[in-house]
């Protein structure tokens, strides 16, 4: 049952509700339910957070390595260099997300313009 499996207007929206809302909201509800019952530094939450973090990091890795659209015309080296420069700026210059994003974009934009 893929996103375009059925030829009607509402299936994609149902797909979004089932794979999106129905898979995210229960975690939020669980948070309300457990709020005040489990300490948020308990061991099981370390494992839970680790899996979630690795999964989102995998998304980032895939976005950098397998881009789509015009970004796909750039070299992998440029994309890694831009992301690395942005992260370094974030890491060393006061942990400001906006600064990291701007530095990465400048490096990437210049590289794209120069044909890397």
């Amino acid at each position: 049952m893929t996103f375009d499996a059925f030829d009607n207007w509402w299936w994609p929206f149902l797909f979004i509700v089932l794979a999106g809302w129905a898979m995210t909201y229960p975690w939020r509800a669980l948070g309300v339910f457990l709020g005040g019952r489990i300490r948020d530094d308990s061991e099981i939450l370390v494992l839970v957070r680790s899996v979630a973090t690795a999964l989102v990091a995998a998304v980032i890795g895939n976005l950098i390595c397998f881009p789509s659209g015009p970004a796909a015309e750039t070299t992998l080296i440029l994309r890694i260099a831009a992301a690395g420069a942005g992260f370094a700026a974030y890491f060393f210059l006061g942990r400001m997300i906006l600064l990291g994003v701007v530095v990465a974009e400048v490096v990437f934009g210049l590289g794209f313009y120069l044909g890397y």
Binding site: W27, G31, G35, L45, V48, A52, T53, L55
Partner: peptide, 10 residues
């Protein structure tokens, strides 16, 4: 990917 929402809400 959304497990992290639970500890945030908590």
């Amino acid at each position: 990917s959304s497990v992290r929402l639970a500890p945030m809400v908590m």
